[in-house]
Amino acid sequence: MTTAQSNAASLSWYEASARQRVEALLDRGSFCEFIGPEQREASPHLSIFDLPEQFDDGIVIGRGRLEGSSVLIAAQEGRFMGGAFGEVHGAKLTGLLRAARMLKEDVLVLFDTGGVRLQEANAGELAIAEIMRAVIEARRAGIKVVGLIGGRAGCYGGGSLIAGTCSRLIISEQGRISVSGPEVIETNKGVEEFDSRDRALVWRTMGGKHRYLIGGADTFVDDEALAFRQAAINTLEMNGRYDLPLLTAEQQRLERRLTRFSPAADAIDVWQTLGIEAPTEIPGLPTKEFMRRAADKRENADDAR
C-alpha cells in the first residue's frame, strides 16, 4: 500500500488565490503592488446592487522580477465575482499595459475570469476593448504580453478575447478558454447542443489539452505554480515580433483550421483528424504521455509568432 501524500508541498495553480499565484510565480520577495487594497479603489457600482466589494476589485497588479528580469504582472482573483471585469478592475489592467509600453517591460497576465461583470456591463465591455487595444499597442512596441490560464473561473467572455490578442498563452489541463461559457451555450442553444453539467464534455471542448492541440494555446504545463513559472521564464526568452506578415500567416492558419475541423462534431473527432493516436484516451493521460502523443501532431501558431 502506498502512503497518500499531503499536498502541502506543492501549490496547485487551480486552487491558489491571485496573490498566492503572484508570490509563487515571481522571484521571492520581489513583488511590488500598484494601487493595492490599502488604497481601497473598489467598484463604484456594486453597492447599488447591495453586493460586497473588494478593496482591489478582484485584480492584483504590480511589478516584480522573474529570474532576475523586471516584469509587470496582473492576476485576476477568480473567487471574487468569478474574476469578472468591472470598471476599476479593467482600468487597472489597461493602465498596467500602457505603462508596459512606456517602461519597455514585458507583461504577465494571470487570467481567471468569467468575462464582463454583469452589474457594470457597459464599463466592463469598454474595458475589454481598451485592454485589447493596449495589448496590441504594447506588442507593436516590441513588448511581450503573456497569458497564463489555469484558474477555477477559466478564461471566458471578454477575457478570452484579450487572451486572443496576447503574444503567447500558457495553459494547464484545468485551464479553459472559450468566448461563451457552457451555461450560456446551453441556455441559448439547448441541452442537446451542449450539456453544461457534463464536465468531461466541457473540458474536452474548452479545456487546456484541447486548446493546446488545436494551437489555441502555446505551452502546456502541469497544474503547479512552479511549472507555470518555468514556462513563463522560457516564453519571455522568445522574440516578440509583431508585424503584418505575422498577422497574415495567423489569419491563414485560422482559415485552414476552420476548413480542416469543421466536419467534427466533438473534440475527439478533431483529435482524430489531427492523427492523434487513441484520441479517446487523451483526457485521462498524464502530462508526459499527452505531450508525447501531441508532439508533431498538434497545430501551432509558431509561424505567426
Binding site: 484545468q174 457534463d198 464536465r199 468531461a200 466541457v202 473540458w203 479545456g207 489539452k209 483526457p283 485521462g284
Partner: peptide
C-alpha cells in the same frame, strides 16, 4: 481504478 462519471470530471 476509480473511473469518475463524466459529470464529475474536469479533464
Amino acid at each position: 481504478l476509480y473511473r469518475p462519471p463524466s459529470r464529475f470530471r474536469n479533464w
